[in-house]
């Protein structure tokens, strides 16, 4: 009750929250990231416009990496599973995430998709995002690195038109460079744009068609692979899913349905989202 005048009106309480609106997504992303780190899998969030050549680059990557790296992927797509089928045919076992009308992947969609791919056995796990230069940049998925595919046909000013996306990029793959002789596109102008939106611009020129640059891209990936877990710590046949190994001892159900909204589990774990390393470390409590 209002304590000033006794009028009987309810009090208006200002509650200072000061929290990221997407904090639930951030927590799920941290959970995904902990899984990838613990398993020694390099997770890459591959973004870019529709038609930038994301799938084609992955197909070329698979050809070049055959026998060197185990690759796998999930592909976000509004309506089809074409990309996942193309990747699987190219030797990259892939699952599809059909987002319906959603213009981006979020951490929960990725987490669900992990049940459909034997991702633990992989060296590099590609999360091929929905073709879009805006929305995907806003959502952390738990990846180690963001890679943005930008094709030479898209125009030199794409980086400064989409600064949010390119700021998040750890690497830009300039794709379809085999077309450069036919276009009036200046690679230097693209590099200048990137320097204005990326504090540490890195770009590799590739052609999925000719294979140019794919080796440099593979080297970039190999240099960033996390350490493998010690022998024995890996490959134990537990369900990757929810609830295991969070380092808390209250023994909740490990065999429960995968389709529930597990975000609630995380909320019961104070500080979990800031301490995902402890998540990995606490992995063995249930043997």
């Amino acid at each position: 009750m209002c304590s000033d005048c006794g009028c009987g009106d309810p009090d208006v309480v200002p509650l200072e929250v000061q929290e990221r609106i997407l904090s639930d997504n951030d927590r799920t992303a941290a959970h995904n990231r902990a899984h990838f780190v613990e398993a020694g899998v390099l997770a890459i969030n591959l973004m870019g416009s529709p038609g930038a050549g994301k799938t084609a680059v992955l197909e070329a990557t698979a050809r070049a990496a055959a026998g060197r790296l185990h690759l796998g992927a999930v592909s976000g797509d509004l309506a089809t599973d074409n990309d996942a089928r193309r990747l699987t045919a190219a030797g990259v076992p892939s699952a599809s995430i059909t987002t319906g009308s959603a213009c981006h992947l979020d951490a929960r969609l990725v987490h669900h998709a992990l049940h459909d791919v034997a991702w633990r056995e992989l060296d590099v796990f590609f999360i091929e995002n929905v073709g879009n230069l805006v929305c995907p940049a806003v959502y952390d998925l738990g990846q180690a690195f963001n890679v943005v595919a930008l094709s030479v046909t898209e125009g030199e000013d794409k980086p400064i038109k989409y600064p949010v996306m390119f700021r998040k990029a750890d690497l830009v793959l300039l794709t379809k460079v085999d077309l450069l002789p036919y276009l009036g596109v200046s690679v230097a102008a693209i590099e200048d744009g990137l320097a204005r939106v990326m504090p540490e611009p890195r770009m590799i020129q590739v052609s999925a068609r000719t294979g140019e640059g794919i080796d440099a891209w593979l080297r970039w990936l190999e240099e960033r692979r996390p350490p493998r877990p010690a022998a024995g710590a890996r490959g134990h046949d537990h369900d990757h899913g929810h609830g295991h190994g969070h380092g808390h001892g209250h023994g909740h159900d490990h065999g429960h349905d995968h389709d529930h909204d597990h975000d609630h589990d995380h909320r019961r774990e104070p500080g979990h989202h800031h301490h995902h390393h402890h998540h990995a470390g606490g992995h063995d409590h249930d043997g």
């Binding site: 009090d11 208006v12 000061q18 929290e19 609106i21 997407l22 806003v138 320097a195 204005r196 990326m198």
Partner: peptide, 29 residues
Amino acid sequence: APLRCATCGRPARLTAGDEIILERIEMEV
């Protein structure tokens, strides 16, 4: 401008502008 300090040559850091924050809820209890 390019995101590199003209004086020191170091990559710049974003110090403001990436917020998506719920600051405050005012409610009648």
